[in-house]
Amino acid sequence: MYAFEYRRPASLAEAVSLLSQAEEGKILAGGQTLLPTLKQRLARPTELIDLSKVPELKGIREDGGALVIGAFACHAEVGASDLVKRRIPALADLAVHIGDRQVRALGTLGGSIANADPAADYPAAVVALKGTVKTDLREIAGDDFFTGMFETALNPGEVITGVRFQAPDKAAYAKFRNPASRYAIVGVFVARFGNEVRVAVTGAGPSVFCVTDMEAALAKDFRADALSGVAVSANGLNGDIHASPEYRAHLVTVMAKRAVEACA
């Protein structure tokens, strides 16, 4: 790790101002992605701004029909939250299957979506649950937030404060996980809001995407069988030592069916 300075702001305003003054500032949340990156010397920030003492980023609350989860909520907290389990059980279930127990104790919602790993779980929930990403400056629709592999709509120095998730009538997340890392080789989040159905896929492509053909088929007939014969193309999907693009394309339909079945 290269040397850096460490700051621990006590408010959002202070965090934003430290970031704007830093030569090459980097936010530190749970550190579960950033510290491994720094250890490999893949980044060289001059200052780390630790968000752990910023009260505006904490907590989980209800807001009308939605849930607002603070950016600093760790995966263990979301997974164990009675409120999340009651309002959006699929989201609690997603959180308890991220990484392992120790990663879940530190890794945060804000860090996960800011990092936008193509295999991360939360992006599928942000998109399927019609999420809104709240920052110190604005609100960004979940559909517009993830712009590419490890890329988001965030400006430099912009701080995610939380995510508002709409509570669906039914939802489930099915993940075909990498057995070593537990990241998604393919993860599909299905959510039904009245007559509207959202099918968001992570792990398969460079960034999370919706499968509109599946959404239309499920809107007409919300059963796993409705997806038989609805395939996605392998074109542009990820291929690596874990799975080829063709295999990932196949898994999208399999996981989507499992998610629909889990909604029953």
Binding site: Y6, L28, G31, Q32, L35, D50, R101, Q102, A105, L106
Partner: peptide, 12 residues
């Protein structure tokens, strides 16, 4: 809470 101490700074 159990954490991986290789993935946390002492200052944290």
């Amino acid at each position: 809470r159990s954490v991986k101490s290789c993935t946390m700074l002492a200052v944290q």
